[in-house]
Design a protein around this nucleic acid. Structure first.
Lengths: 230, 230
DNA sequence: CTGTATCCGTGTTGATACTG
DNA sequence: CAGTATCAACACGGATACAG
């Protein structure tokens, strides 16, 4: 009886398979369950610990997060890593292949935000806000280069904008051209043009460092796709 | 009591929401449930009827297909259309916005097929086979143009390859350069180089019309991404 | 503090049978 | 052919308890 219980837990996964050679179907085997893709999103900008993920994925419960991380690890998308002492904590990190899933987020994001149902005032994680920049960056933009720091409470990122792309990594660099210190919702309403910088500053939602002209040049590099006509 | 039951069925959907401004999360609200994305895939190359979908989506049950089609219709991704007499049948079709989801299939397909778990010998729908061509077409290929017909039993497609792209639509054109008449698994093993044309013909799995040299040029336009190193 | 395991109520999924 | 009804199995999320 005991043995049977253990056996059931380990093997004999009665998971439902699509049994389809199509790449999309296979991708869904990997991350088609609820939360999996959003966990991957939260890991796209570097390793996180369990409680970071739990906090940023509003509404996920601990047991589900454990299951999903196990599944993603099993699929070769996530690795569990123990940081060396003195940190000595465990983090979850994407594998190189996992990091290569970013275009999936970009195509899904570009497509879905055209829906009238898209509500940018809903809560947004810091990683989502950063990834949205890489998703919504304009192909044919002014060739401008700059280094930026983005502060969303605990979550701090450095962005390097050049002609080719916007690189983003965790942590702050020494002498950036621009520093945003704000919340994610205010930030994206600024970038996508629903709110003015001065308004946000007056309301105490934003502390901004850097030349206003350069900030505007940065903002002009991004644009949400047009809404669909219904 | 009766009223309550009706009310529960129509409104009061206690569906679980991510409540997240992220575009990926919104996309998952639309097609994150099991089967939804694969239904969209089957519709990508033109309208289908209920039973076509049920047959091609191996393993889906009728009630789930009904629910998913309702959901996709509600989200503005699918429309239900009644063909005029004498056909007089009902079909499901993607909206223009629905058709624009194709890049999602492409990024997911390119990413997932790099997994060692990808098994091209599993069953593959005719639409999947055709979409895989559009997914795996090489950017920097020989500038070659041709018109092809693909026959997979009932499912017949015409492809138009030019410098820019491979267009695909349902139905056969009059004088194509090449005709493939085969099953989907044989077809993709041919295109992605696991099987030779002559072997497939000898085994009776393939009937091919057209100059062999041109066929080879066609095949050379496509390539599966490299497997990940584990 | 950082997870992990278990129980439990509810909602979702799917196989079968059935109806217009 | 195009779905609906029913019911059983499973997945989800919350709470709680536990381990390092």
């Amino acid at each position: 009886m005991e043995l049977e219980k253990i056996t059931n837990k380990k093997n004999a996964k009665p998971k439902r398979w699509y049994t389809d050679a199509c790449g999309t179907a296979l991708a869904l085997e990997f991350f088609g369950e609820r939360w999996s893709l959003l966990i991957m999103r939260e890991l796209m900008l570097g390793p996180r610990r369990f409680s970071d993920l739990k906090d940023d994925l509003h509404g996920i419960s601990a047991n589900i997060l454990t299951q999903r991380l196990e599944g993603l690890e099993h699929s070769g998308i996530v690795v569990r890593r123990k940081l060396p002492p003195p940190a000595n904590i465990q983090v979850y990190e994407l594998t190189p292949w996992g990091y290569e899933a970013e275009p999936i987020f970009q195509t899904m994001g570009r497509w879905a935000t055209r829906s009238p149902a898209h509500d940018p005032m809903l809560p947004l994680s810091a990683v989502s806000a950063m990834l949205s920049l890489r998703t919504m960056i304009l192909e044919d933009r002014e060739p401008v280069s700059m280094v930026l720091v983005f502060r969303f409470g605990e979550n701090v990122f450095t962005g390097r904008l050049d002609k080719k792309e916007l690189q983003i990594e965790r942590g702050a660099v020494e002498k950036p051209d621009i520093v945003f210190d704000t919340d994610t919702t205010t930030f994206i309403t600024l970038v996508y043009g629903k709110r003015s910088i001065t308004d946000a500053e007056r309301e105490g939602r934003l502390r901004l460092t850097g030349e206003r002209e350069l900030v505007q040049k940065f903002i002009d590099c991004f644009s949400l796709p047009e809404k669909i006509i219904t």
